[in-house]
Structure formats: C-alpha cells, structure tokens
Design a protein around this nucleic acid. Structure first.
Lengths: 232, 232
DNA sequence: ACGTGCTTGTGAAAGCGCGCACAAAGTGGG
DNA sequence: CCCACTTTGTGCGCGCTTTCACAAGCACGT
C-alpha cells in the first residue's frame, strides 16, 4: 500500500525554501552576534552558501522584508524567519533510544536553536533506565504515553535500533504525536497527517561513495569506458 | 556535437535517483535476509516508501535488470546497486571530533552497510586522545595527515564543534580527501571537486516545527499566537 | 502452440526549482 | 531637486523530477 506522504498543496512556502530557512536563520544569528545591523542578499547568500537570487526569492515568500538599496535588517529578519518556522513557541521533544546517538542528541546543546525543549528520555534497556543523561532521568519506554501527555510532547525523536523503530513510532502516533524525526534506517509506516523526517547516516555515506567512485572512474581513464563492465 | 541517439545506459544517473538507491538497497537486503528470491516493483516500492513507477524508472537507469511478468531477482539487484554505489570496494573513513556524536558514529555498527571501514578517530581534546572508542585508539588531530595517508582515507567525517569544522575540512582537503560528511552546523568552504554532504539535526527539527505549526493553524482554525499557549 | 495474466520499461505530460536578467525602489551626494 | 548608484523583488525560460498510462515482454496453464 503506497500511502501518499503528507504533501498537501502548500499554499504558502515551497518545501525547498522551508528547508533553507534554518540555514539563513543560523547565518543571520551569527551576523547578529557580531553586531551586524543590515546585510545584503549577496552577502547573506555567500555565508549561507546559496545563490543570491535564490535567497531573495526565498525571502520574498515570507513578505517584503528588505529595503532596496540597503538590504535586510538582521534583527527583523531573524524574528520573521523564527516566527515562520514556529520557533517563537516552545516545542517539547521526547527522545526514545538512549544509546550513543540518543545521548548525543540529548546533549546537543540547546538542541540547535532555542525553541526546542527536551521533555523526556526513554529507553527499553533496564541498564539505561534510571541513569541521568543531560540532566534528565531516563525513563522506561512504558512511560511513553505518560510523558507525551504530561509534558505536552509534540515532536518525537526515534534513535532506537531499526527493529524497535516502527513500534515506537506507532506508540508516538497513538499518543498524539504528529511530528517524528527518525534516525533508524527503516521506512516508517504512519497514518496520513503525521509528518516523518528521516536522517540516515549510512545513506549519506553511500551517496558520497557513489560520487567518489564516479570521480575515480573519470580520473584514470578519460572518457566513458563501458568496456569490461559486463558480468556474466 | 555528434549525434548520439542510441545510448541506453550512460554514466549519468540522476541525483535524485542516486539518493534513493541506498534505500532500495536496504529494502532488498531485508528481503534477502528473509529468503525472498524475487520481488515486484510494486512490492519493493511499498517497502521503500516510494511510488512504483519511480522505482522502475530509477532502476532502469542502471540497466534492464528486471523480468517482465516476474519482477526483479533480489540477489542480482543487490549486487548491481552495490556496484553502482561503489560498495563493492572498501572506503576508509576518518572521524574527527569524538564527542557524543563522534562516539555514536564510531559505534554505528558496521557503519550502515558493508563497504565502509573506520580507519581512524581524531580529536583535539587531550582528555579524549588516547581513549579507546569502538576498538580504536583516539589519536590527536595533529595526526590527521598521517592517518589519511597511511590508511588511505577517502572519506572524512566532521563531528566537531562548529568553530573547528572549517579548519578540519581544510586539512582534510589539503591531505587529499575529496569526500566530506559534515555534522557541524556550518557551511563549509571547499575547493571545486570536493564533495561535501551535510547532516544537520537542528535543521530537521525546525522543518518539523514549521509543518507542525502549519497543521496547528489549519486544525484549530485559529492562528497560533503566543497567547494561545497551553500552559495549564 | 497459444491465449491469459502479470509486470517491466518508457514515452509524454505536468510540476517544481533554479538562476538570469531587469525593472522598481530606495539612498546619498552634489 | 536631480542624478548616479545600490539592492530588492520577480518574470521568464530551462532542465530536472515525478507521475500516468500503456505497449512490450515473459511465464504458465491448457
């Protein structure tokens, strides 16, 4: 059953733009820390590593927040992007699977930018339950529903082994969580309306390997050698 | 431009396809472990979470490896995708920054699939250097060039704080590494020909927050304002 | 041998994203 | 006040991606 991912007609901001807004936001915050008051699209784009036209078009989806001949006011733009991304409110995050990765996530200072608060750490392993990680007690996975409800968790992070991931996801959904960040290398099956994002470390490596191999092929023998590739 | 109409399998696999091949590969290996011999595009697509037509088109870029009326032979397809991704050879990986994340990566069993071998762990912190992580000694960052050359490292992983990331990247490049996987939330500046992929945990969270906020807006019919926070 | 039933491989069309290039709009100097 | 200069916002075309829909191809039962 190929259920369609949550891809309704986004009347607002293109998906590609949304994915870049956090990058702009980080660049702007760095400028803000250095005391910069205004910035041109050219400058900001070079910091963020994108084309300046793309940056301007992205920002134009939020509104006309720039001043022609001058640029963008850093502080104002930080606020506008933060608001658009929903970072002006707090999001409660629960992390399931306190292995190496889960610990890394829990200790990820402030979880990136402000706006995210770790509300609970959960694990199934009795050897881990009860330990303190990042100033939080690790609770048993059985408390998932409790934690979600009492702490108002709206984002669930799955850092468990692949075999447990689907079960945890289902429980998250059952408990009312509609946003899931999945680090387990499996495709999660969730009902419509639940947003799942996947981060897969080994996939990134494999993509790197593909390009590296391609480069190596081109280096040694210029031209496309199709000879000798056949396997019988 | 000489005419070259008949060129079925050129060296050009679309980027979007490359990004999905690892997903198919994992799904196929799961099938293989269960003893499945053949699989239809429909079935494989549902496991991989994609449209079946997309899957077929993706696979068609590798060649005609299916049998009409039957499907794809799992083992053969595993081999073909592995070969295309460059996983039939070994890639040496060096990880810099053995904090929580670095440790998580080092312990990431077999680093996803076979094909990747962790050749070295490096850190700048004297408190970490000398420790053993994932059966490997953590060496001081000064040895980066040594490790790269002696172990033939071709992929560098950066799991350092943001402030150190650019420096490490430059040293990787200087030492001849042309593939970099960056976990630090900064845009790396590298010369042409160097492939950088970025994994940013907080960006993923922010994208989730954006969609969650949007859903909340539509659901309640009321705008999500700071006034409407449920702080009971 | 031959039809029936699946499944692949692929044109074709629609959708999306990117970047050029330029008009519009604001600034500052004289 | 006017002009030269800077920078934003965007119309437009191009190329990549996705999806549909279907002809071609293969297996199997009769």
């Amino acid at each position: 059953m190929t259920s369609r991912p949550p891809r309704p007609r986004e009347r607002g901001i293109p998906e590609a733009t949304v994915a870049r807004l956090p990058v702009y936001l980080r660049a702007l915050q760095a400028l803000q820390d250095r005391g910069t008051l205004t910035v041109s699209s050219e400058h900001l784009a070079s910091i963020a590593g994108v084309n300046s036209a793309k940056l301007r078009k992205d920002l134009s989806h939020l509104g006309s927040y720039g001043t022609r001949g001058v640029g963008y006011e850093v502080e104002y733009l930080v606020y506008q992007i933060s608001r658009e991304l929903g970072l002006t409110q707090d999001w409660s995050v629960a992390i399931v699977g306190i292995g190496n990765l889960g610990r890394a996530l829990a200790n990820y200072g402030g979880f990136g930018t402000r706006g995210f608060r770790i509300a609970g750490l959960l694990d199934a392993d009795p050897a881990v339950v009860g330990k303190t990680v990042a100033s939080l007690d690790v609770r048993h996975i059985d408390n998932l529903e409790d934690v979600v409800r009492s702490k108002g968790v709206s984002i669930g992070v799955i850092a468990t082994p692949s075999t447990s991931a689907q079960g945890v996801a289902s429980r998250f959904v059952e408990a009312g969580v509609t946003s899931i960040l999945n680090f387990a290398p499996v495709v999660l099956n969730v009902p419509e309306g639940v947003d799942v994002r996947k981060v897969d470390l080994s996939i990134e490596l494999q993509i790197l390997a593909f390009h590296a191999q391609r480069r190596a092929d081109g280096d040694s023998g210029r031209g496309v050698d199709r000879a000798g590739l056949e396997l019988t």
